[in-house]
């Protein structure tokens, strides 16, 4: 762990993040914008599967998920910048470890959706109900997203004392 931290703080990325005082606030803004796009597009699709938005085929809303992936990409890139800037504040932070666990659960849940349910979901019409398994995956997706946000917010309060 120490070796990884030493390497990270020696990178040009770490220098860039810490050298200019506007980089961190702008990266935070982009991190939240990415999260908002991810939450909005994934949330909209999940709520359709749960039956809250009828009258539109799930496949239509599924197309918007490419924006969500882009938002997630922005959040990952800016997240890596934060870690490169102050790695010890993340690697020794229990909230960060939990956030990574929930991100992995989100990814696993999405993989399960495409493996088990996607072929059935894309055939659904505007007023069709999603299968129960797809609803369970959608509910889990929303819960994991809320958990990731919670852990992200808790980072500040679980910082190591150095």
């Amino acid at each position: 762990m120490e070796a990884v931290i030493d390497w990270l703080v020696s990178t040009r990325l770490s220098w860039f993040v810490l050298e200019y005082r506007w980089v961190w606030p702008i990266s935070e803004t982009l991190h939240f914008c990415g999260l908002t796009v991810l939450a909005g597009t994934v949330g909209l699709f999940d709520l359709r599967l749960l039956g809250l938005v009828k009258g539109v085929a799930p496949a239509v809303l599924h197309r918007q998920l490419s924006w969500g992936v882009a938002g997630f990409g922005v959040s990952v890139v800016t997240g890596i910048m934060f870690i490169a800037g102050t790695p010890d504040q993340y690697f020794y932070n229990n909230a960060f470890k939990l956030k990574v666990v929930f991100l992995a659960l989100m990814g696993t849940n999405a993989a399960l959706f495409y493996w088990l349910e996607f072929s059935r979901i894309r055939e659904l019409g505007p007023n069709d109900d999603a299968p129960r398994a797809a609803k369970a995956i959608a509910a889990a997706s929303l819960l994991f997203l809320a958990a990731v946000m919670c852990c992200g917010r808790m980072l500040t309060f679980f910082r190591p004392p150095f």
């Binding site: 939450a39 909005g40 597009t41 949330g43 709520l47 938005v53 009258g55 918007q64 505007p126 809320a146």
Partner: peptide, 26 residues
């Protein structure tokens, strides 16, 4: 923020991508 701005952004992107709009959407 995720509920209000997130869903609003999701709808905005949906509107911008759509050529036609299902008026019966609930």
């Amino acid at each position: 923020l995720a509920l209000l701005a997130g869903l609003s952004v999701g709808i905005d992107l949906w509107v911008l991508a759509a050529r036609t709009w299902p008026r019966a959407v609930a």
